[in-house]
Simulated scan of single mutants.
Amino acid sequence: MTAVTAPSDALRRLLDLLASGASTEQLAHVVVAARAEGTLGASDLAALASAGELALRIRETLAEHRRREAQLTALFETASELAALSDPDTVLRSIVRRARALLGVDVSYLSLNREAENKTYVRVSDGSVSAEFQQIVLGMGEGLGGLVAQTARPYATSDYFTDERFKHTRHIDSGVKDEGLTAILGVPLAIGPKVLGVLFASDRATREFTADEVALLSSLADHAAIALDSANLLDQTRRAVAELNEANATIRAQNEAMERAEDAHDRLTDLVLRGGDLPDVADAVAGVLHGDLTVYDADGTLLANSAAPVALDPAALAAARTAGRAVSTE
């Protein structure tokens, strides 16, 4: 390192280190080294110390700007990814995965509200290892998540089990303890006044969630709520279209059957009016059914057939008489 012989040398060194993204230790060492060398007077050392403190604040500001820029970039990428998804379950998995990565937490999870039951259910998680935790159901106002779902406001705690702001219940605390969680942040998933659920970020150690982290997760939740609502609407549209297609197919089949019945009625009526006998009728009916027809009387005597006669099946005949409906002989 070049010796400091004048205040300008030290100041230039501080600026060079700032420009190169040096660590706080490297910046602080400039002042320490100048004192050790003893070439600067007391007033120059005091000015250099002030400049060093300013350099450290500038470094922290630049680091904070870079961090926020990285977060905004990640948030933009997340919004773009969510907008491209159309399946609700895929959207949910993407939301919790992104939340965990954005805040660097151990576990992220998401609950969805069921208004009719006045409850919110944990639906999907990322990083969770507890089956009990993954099946937690929170009543509105219960625990941290139930309070977020009820009030549509974000809540955070550095130590959930010692935080008396929340209504602790046995089954919620048991699930959280089984997962080993301590610090929890929850923000509402909402479209206007309607709360869809809650998005959570949590750590297994004590952690103070900053205002910036609350704002970041809230921004993600806003994008996520829109994407989830759009995916649900698209899914409902798909189901409605499928049901409509099924109904159309049923109506089309019924119409075709009615047309065939009308055609058969017309053909048989015309045949009878022209004096057709039983063999003629048998041929006509066989044509309508696209098959062969054999007619027997009650005593089993062959009366007519459209092709080679089919042998009478006494067992099938008895079953048909008992049931009062047609019976297959196959």
Rank of each mutant, 00 (worst) to 15 (best):
L273A: 12
D229G: 14
L233A: 15
S230T: 14
A190V: 11
I251T: 06
G192W: 10
P193E: 06
F161V: 09
H171N: 00
D229V: 12
D163A: 05
V198T: 00
V187S: 09
A183M: 04
E243S: 14
E256T: 04
E179G: 00
A215L: 15
T169I: 11
G197P: 05
A190P: 05
A205V: 14
D229E: 15
T210A: 12
E256D: 12
R252E: 09
L234Q: 11
V272D: 04
V214C: 01
Q254N: 11
V176N: 01
D266N: 13
A190G: 04
V187F: 00
A240V: 12
E179I: 06
T162C: 12
I184H: 04
H265N: 03
D212L: 13
F161Y: 10
L181M: 04
R267V: 11
K167S: 06
D235Y: 04
L185N: 00
E243D: 14
E243C: 07
T269G: 03
R204M: 00
R239V: 04
R238K: 12
S230R: 13
E243A: 15
G192R: 09
L244Q: 14
D235T: 11
H265T: 00
L228V: 01
E259D: 11
G180T: 10
A224Q: 05
V187Y: 10
V214M: 06
K194W: 15
R239P: 04
A231I: 07
I172R: 02
R252I: 02
Q236K: 15
A264L: 07
N245P: 02
T210Y: 07
R170I: 09
A224R: 08
D178C: 12
G186C: 00
T206W: 09
L220N: 03
M258V: 09
A225I: 08
L181G: 00
A231L: 07
R274V: 02
N255A: 15
L234G: 10
L233D: 14
L228T: 10
E208P: 09
L244P: 07
T182N: 08
K177T: 11
L234P: 06
D263A: 01
F161I: 11
F200M: 01
S202T: 01
A257N: 01
L217M: 03
V214K: 02
S219M: 14
V195C: 02
A225V: 10
A224H: 07
V195I: 00
V176G: 01
H171P: 07
G192T: 03
D173P: 06
G175H: 05
F200I: 05
V241Y: 07
N248I: 15
G192Q: 08
L244M: 14
